Amino acid sequence: MKTIDEMLSLDLLTPEQHHQIGAWIARADSPDAILEMPASLWQAVERASAVMGIDADLLRPPSLDAGGAVFS
């Protein structure tokens, strides 16, 4: 929900889309049920994700410095 809240705050989703997506996710009892969301809502999420660069973040290799952690 945090991601769709951010999409709303950035005006990438309308309040109605945000409500419908949030309600769908809340009703879904499994990841497969979420995947059955209507195409128009998926398209809205995909457009917002593209603008936010979410796909690029997911495809970026992990940082090797691990935030300064030291592994032995």
Rank of each mutant, 00 (worst) to 15 (best):
A50D: 08
W24F: 11
S49I: 05
H19S: 15
P15L: 12
A28K: 07
R47V: 10
E46S: 07
F71V: 05
H18R: 13
A23Q: 14
V51L: 03
V70M: 01
H19W: 03
G53T: 02
P61C: 04
S30L: 14
D57M: 15
G67H: 05
L58W: 04
L13V: 01
A23Y: 04
D57Q: 13
P15D: 15
L59Q: 12
D32F: 11
I25Y: 12
L64N: 10
F71K: 00
G68L: 07
G22I: 04
E36S: 09
A44C: 02
L64I: 09
A26H: 09
P38C: 06
T14D: 11
L35Q: 06
S49G: 11
G68Y: 03
I21Q: 06
W42H: 14
S63Q: 12
I21F: 03
S40G: 01
G53A: 06
A56P: 01
A66K: 08
D65G: 00
G67F: 09
D5A: 09
I25D: 10
A69E: 11
P61A: 06
S40I: 08
F71A: 01
W42G: 01
A50H: 05
A23E: 15
A56E: 12
L41W: 06
R60H: 14
T14H: 08
L58F: 10
G53V: 04
W24K: 12
V51W: 00
E6W: 05
A33V: 08
D11Y: 03
A39C: 00
A26R: 15
W42C: 01
H18L: 02
Q20E: 15
I4E: 11
A50M: 06
T14Y: 03
S63C: 05
A44R: 00
I25W: 13
L8I: 02
L13R: 05
W42D: 02
D29Q: 10
A23W: 04
I21D: 08
D5Q: 15
M1C: 08
G53K: 11
L58N: 15
V70H: 01
I34W: 00
M1E: 05
I4S: 12
I54Q: 05
D57N: 12
L12A: 11
D55W: 08
R60L: 12
L58I: 08
Q43I: 06
L59C: 06
Q43Y: 08
V45P: 00
A39I: 03
S30T: 09
L12S: 10
P31Q: 05
D11P: 02
G67L: 12
E46D: 10
